[in-house]
């Protein structure tokens, strides 16, 4: 994104909107058990809030929010969170991704499945957010002079 002009109004509007979009993204992830939502949609919303700052503010300002090199570790954290949940369930004696065997004391099998789903939704959300930001960053790399 080569910025031909500096518009403080666009930047101010994006800065006003971005935190609320990010908060709504986390709401969609966490509240996905009770309403339409979940990891994929919430991750797309989180990525939208970051990309809004990247498009309107340029490279220097958007670096303050999420660094470019931080997206690959975030995606790995998301995938490993998902895989680790399944692996822990498998080590504890169940099948792969059978949440009823998660080692959380004081919970019945159905509430354990509830908790396991919440964990993997957060993993999916982190991975989707990081991947969408990574695709954008790699595409505009070298042409971002703003």
């Amino acid at each position: 994104m080569r910025s031909k002009f500096d518009s403080p109004i666009v930047l101010l509007g994006s800065r006003l909107l971005a935190p609320y979009i990010m908060l709504f993204g986390w709401y969609v992830i966490i509240h996905g058990h009770y309403s339409p939502g979940g990891g994929f949609q919430g991750g797309a919303l989180l990525a939208a809030s970051v990309l809004l700052i990247r498009i309107s503010g340029g490279r220097v300002i958007s670096r303050l929010q999420i660094q470019e090199f931080a997206t690959t570790p975030l995606a790995i954290v998301g995938v490993v969170l998902y895989f680790g949940t399944g692996l822990v369930a498998m080590i504890m004696g169940g099948n792969f991704l059978d949440y009823a065997y998660l080692p959380i004391p004081g919970m019945e099998a159905d509430w354990l499945r509830y908790t396991g789903m919440l964990i993997i939704e957060v993993g999916i959300g982190l991975a989707v957010m990081a991947i969408l930001i990574m695709i954008y960053d790699n595409m505009v790399k070298g042409e971002d002079h703003a």
Binding site: F40, Q41, G43, A44, V128, I131, L132, I135
Partner: peptide, 13 residues
């Protein structure tokens, strides 16, 4: 289709 949409965006990238 929920998963297909997100995978579609990634493959479009």
């Amino acid at each position: 289709m929920l998963t297909a949409i997100v995978v579609g965006v990634a493959t479009l990238g």
